[in-house]
Simulated assay, not measured.
Amino acid sequence: MKLTEKATVRAFHRHRLGGTSLQALGFRGPESQVRRFEALCTWGDFSGCSILDLGCGYGDLKPFLDQRYEDIIYLGVDFLQEFVDGAQASHGHLPNTQFFHSDFLTAGLPEVDIVIASGSLNYRSENILHPWQMITRMWEAAGKGVVFNLLDAKIFGEDEVLCGYDIDEVSAYCKKLDAQTKILNDYLPDDFTVLMRKS
């Protein structure tokens, strides 16, 4: 993404910081966030895994995972300092939890078991290779698998900041990396989740 595109994303979220935490993140409400998190969890058992959460926002995924799995090592990364500060204040006390302020689009990704991206790949970019480059980087950093969600282009309308993706196109690309890639698209009308595993 270009610097101007990143600035637009920052402005998109900072404009919403005066509202609720979910509004700041761009979620419609708590049900929308929970359904996305539940879809991510269909990947499998995260117990004992190290997890990298790209675009972690306020870190709400960590306590959600802690309620379902044991012994998770969680690294949350976001390029908005306000989100990282909020995540640290709310969840930094949880065991095996760290939050970092970094631009994961350009920074090196640490090697972990599972890489997660919930909503953070939906930003519009003039670089048509952007989503494919990020999926590949996530796959290379993950020892066990990758799970992420995207907006469905067939349902999601035009937006200056966000963009939707064609499910078939995403599936075809991901299957070049993992032939057993699965797509889940029955939990929200305009969202789908991609589940990838390394054998």
Rank of each mutant, 00 (worst) to 15 (best):
E111P: 00
F37H: 14
I116G: 11
I73H: 08
F83A: 12
S32L: 01
D178K: 03
D66H: 02
Y123I: 14
D60T: 05
S118D: 12
A107P: 02
R28E: 03
L129Y: 15
L80R: 00
G92C: 12
P30G: 12
E160F: 01
G108F: 00
F27Q: 03
V9I: 15
G92M: 11
G19H: 09
D71Y: 00
P110Y: 02
I51A: 11
L17F: 06
I128A: 15
K175S: 04
D159F: 04
E70Q: 14
I167W: 06
E160Y: 01
G57S: 09
G143A: 11
G26P: 05
D113C: 07
T42E: 06
S32A: 15
R124W: 10
Q67V: 04
Y173C: 07
S118I: 02
A179F: 01
G26A: 08
L65H: 05
F148E: 08
I167H: 05
D53Q: 03
F12P: 00
T4S: 13
S199C: 07
Q98G: 06
F64K: 13
C49D: 06
I167D: 01
W43Q: 10
T20Q: 01
C163A: 07
I72K: 02
F64E: 03
E70N: 13
F192I: 06
S32E: 14
G18M: 00
D166A: 06
D166H: 10
T136Y: 15
F148S: 12
L65D: 10
D152L: 07
Y173M: 05
F46V: 01
C174M: 09
V161W: 07
W139N: 15
H13D: 00
R137G: 13
E140R: 15
T97P: 00
V115L: 11
G143D: 12
C41K: 02
L109G: 10
L54S: 05
D60L: 02
V170H: 02
C41M: 06
F46Y: 14
T106R: 11
A87R: 04
D178F: 04
A141W: 08
R124M: 12
F83I: 10
T42C: 01
G92Y: 13
D45W: 00
L25Y: 01
L75D: 03
S50C: 00
L162Y: 01
C174S: 09
Y173L: 11
H91N: 13
L3Q: 09
Q88Y: 00
S125E: 05
I155A: 08
N149G: 14
S21T: 07
A141F: 10
R14M: 02
R28L: 04
G19V: 00
G26Y: 06
F64R: 14
H130A: 15
G19K: 07
K198L: 04
G143E: 13
G119W: 14
F156Q: 06
G18C: 01
G29A: 00
T106E: 14
P95E: 13
L75M: 09
Y58L: 13
T193N: 07
C41A: 14
L184S: 05
P63I: 11
G48W: 00
T106Q: 14
K176Q: 15
M134I: 15
G76V: 12
E70D: 11
W132C: 04
R68Q: 15
A142H: 10
G145T: 09
K182N: 06
